[in-house]
Structure formats: structure tokens, C-alpha cells
Design a protein around this nucleic acid. Structure first.
Lengths: 106, 106
DNA sequence: TTCACATTCAACCGATCCGTTATATTCCAT
DNA sequence: ATGGAATATAACGGATCGGTTGAATGTGAA
């Protein structure tokens, strides 16, 4: 019986996986995702008010995350309405937070 | 019955969670973790040979990940032996890779 | 002690990235 | 068509980061 351990991330996906992780590695983006997760759908303005960030900055982060498929964008008249597109996001954050809690502070 | 959605990442943990995600957001570090996951324990030299990276670079990345509790370091005579310290890492990568596969290429 | 080897540390460079400011675009109401 | 509001885009400055190079530290053998 072979006990070969499978790879963590198969080579062809290394780049993409890193991009996805890096996308989550920004406090501001995590803040935006937090709001979207709690409220479901939000306009850019609502996210601006909820996070205290500048409109251009919020727009830029949302654009980035949308292009990477992490959030999705829907147009309603004058407004752009964003929501989370990655159904695994919640599980990811729970794993990370759980692990961080039972770990001597870094 | 209240249907309040819990936060993705509680405020006090935002910074740390982002740091953890960012740590995983580098192809080279993912490569190192890949090797550690497959082989269990490895010296710096073995990781250098396995990844083709410069020794100083490997050492720097390992030091970073060790300080953040992602890998652990054990000294054996002349050698520094590293291994993965985060038991959730495998699940994290499986989630991300699985999600990336069923997603129109970004 | 002296030497060789494994690893870490420090300094540097180029690239990337975040946040801001200012300008463009798009859509609706009048 | 004109004006105003929501959003996106472009350009910029400062900070961070990854990789390299060279020196320093530490460990074991002779």
C-alpha cells in the first residue's frame, strides 16, 4: 500500500491559488467581504459608509475581487450592487480564525 | 428568531487573519509548504534543492512562516529541520483549489 | 583551535501594492 | 439636451515585499 501524500496545491494551480490567498490577505478587503457576508448585497456607497474607506479605494478593491471571481457585481440603475461569489469563503475564514485562536500569539 | 449572520472574521482578528492569508499568497511559499507537506520534515538544503530557490531566500521565507506559526523549526546538529505546524493548512488548500477549479478562469 | 558546512542576518534593488486625488464614465431625472 | 449622482479609471507617492548578494553566526569534525 502506497502512502504517498498528495500535493497541497498541484503545480498548475500554484499561481492561481497564491493569487486567491493574496486577495484575502488585505485587512481592507477582508473588511469589505465581512460587510458583504453580513448584509448580502451592498452598493459601493453602502460599503464606503460601512468601512470608512474612500470611494475610489472601495471601488478598486471590489473591481479586483470581482475580476478574480471572489465577489460578483450586478447593475441596478445607477448603482453597482456587489455580493460574495465564492461559497467557500466562510469556511476558509472559519478555519483560519479557529487555527489562529489556539495558537500562541505571533 | 434572529437570523443575524455572524461575521466572517471578527474585528479583533482582522489583522492577524489577513497576515495569515497573505503568508499563503506567495507562490514560492506555497511551493515550500507543498514540499513540507509531502515529505514531512526537511532541512533547508533539501528545500533549496527541491524548489530551485536560493538558500537565503528559502531561509527567509521559512523564518517568516515559523514566526507566524505556520511551520515549526527543529534543530538537529548542524541542520535546521522544518515541518508544517498548522494542521488546517491542507483543508485550506483543498477548499481553495476546489473552488478555483469550478470557476471560469480569471 | 582551526576549518568546513548549514543556516541566518543585513543591506540593497526593483517590482508590486495600498491609499489618495483628480478625472472620466455612466445612468437617471428634469 | 443638461445637470447631478454613483461608480470606475488614471496617475501618483509612499510603503511593503521578494529575490539577490555578501557577511555573520553557529555547529560539528579534525
Amino acid at each position: 500500500m502506497t502512502t504517498m501524500k498528495h500535493q497541497l496545491v498541484p503545480q498548475p494551480m500554484l499561481e492561481r491559488a497564491a493569487r486567491r490567498f493574496k486577495l484575502l490577505g488585505e485587512p481592507t478587503r477582508l473588511l469589505l467581504l465581512n460587510q458583504l457576508h453580513v448584509h448580502g448585497e451592498m452598493t459601493v456607497q453602502e460599503l464606503v459608509e460601512a468601512t470608512g474607506q474612500q470611494q475610489a479605494n472601495v471601488s478598486k478593491h471590489l473591481g479586483l475581487m470581482a475580476r478574480e471571481g471572489l465577489v460578483q457585481r450586478r447593475q441596478d440603475g445607477l448603482y453597482a450592487i456587489y455580493s460574495i461569489a465564492d461559497p467557500t469563503l466562510s469556511a476558509l475564514c472559519m478555519l483560519v480564525c479557529g487555527q489562529l485562536q489556539q495558537q500562541p500569539l505571533s
